[in-house]
Design a protein around this nucleic acid. Structure first.
Length: 276
DNA sequence: GCCCAGGAGATTT
DNA sequence: AAATCTCATGGG
């Protein structure tokens, strides 16, 4: 068991923010599957206690090198973000493995976080070398993936694995738009998933993934409820949040999702109220 | 039964 | 360039 200092960090908020799916809470600790490692971690204030990997690996994955105080200060210049920044204090953008991130977000199409987690777990159990997620050359065929109930995503995953095996995820750098275009050459990766991978795996903090929740909340908060194209939302975010757009996006995303959960909890009628 | 879900891709308008 | 359909599956 090791301990490292982790000021301005919330392990729980970060893991629960829907950017990474290979973790679970168990016996009061978090079990995190990082590449071929099982990391058990527990946060106690500004200290992170963990085992299963070395400190540099853990610091890099949790992006403890990001100056979150400075990021928050900069983004808090926008009054709209102050609530989310405070409420979800300590949320960081992780550094994930590119292929795992690609596979996870291909499955994310028209899905939801619990189901994505299950899909990722199923693929790992079926094709990987436990506890690692399958490398591209280990991935199953389309029929094998369909058997895991991945639906129309099965073909995308099988083909994307082939391209990843050919090195199509290697050395992606340069302007964000060129990284995006390179990612979008893989089937099942459109603009939104490309931005997720750029942000969560390639450390491109200026990427601004526009999903259904971000679209909804951006319309409401910045466009007077008018409907706008995703392209316009992205260019607005680039201008307004600059190189930290991705951080802004993640705080907006969790805030939008939590307000949904609250309204659902308060409006759902108890089972007893249902006619028998 | 209907609707929506961290969409993408193809087709139509 | 925007609107519309389809693609599978699961949960509310």
């Amino acid at each position: 068991m090791q301990t490292i200092s982790c000021p301005e960090f919330s392990l729980r908020t970060t893991l629960e923010s829907g950017q990474f799916f290979r973790w679970r809470e168990r016996d009061g600790a978090f079990e995190i599957l990082l590449r071929d490692r099982v990391i058990t971690a527990r946060q106690d204030g500004d200290e992170l206690r963990f085992e299963g990997a070395d400190a540099p690996t853990v610091r890099r994955f949790f992006a403890l090198d990001h100056d979150l105080s400075a990021i928050r200060a900069e983004l808090a210049r926008d009054p709209v973000l102050r609530g989310p920044l405070e409420r979800f204090r300590g949320l960081r953008i992780l550094r994930q493995d590119p292929w795992e991130c690609v596979a996870a977000f291909i499955t994310s199409a028209a899905s939801n976080i619990p189901r994505i987690s299950r899909n990722v777990r199923d693929m790992a159990a079926r094709f990987g070398t436990p506890p690692a997620f399958p490398r591209p050359h280990e991935m199953g065929t389309e029929p094998q993936l369909r058997a895991l109930r991945l639906g129309f995503r099965a073909r995308y995953l099988a083909e994307a694995a082939r391209l990843a095996r050919d090195g199509r995820l290697d050395r992606l750098d340069g302007p964000l738009d060129s990284v995006r275009d390179a990612l979008m050459e893989l089937p099942g990766i459109g603009g939104k998933v490309a931005d997720c991978v750029a942000l969560f795996a390639y450390g491109r903090l200026e990427a601004f993934p526009v999903d259904t929740w971000v679209r909804k909340t951006m319309r409401k908060l910045y466009f007077g409820g008018r409907r706008v194209t995703d392209r316009r939302i992205r260019s607005f975010a680039a201008r307004r949040f600059g190189p930290l757009a991705g951080y802004a996006q993640q705080y907006l995303f969790v805030a939008a999702r939590s307000s949904r959960a609250e309204s659902r909890d308060s409006t759902r009628s108890p089972a007893a109220a249902r006619p028998a």
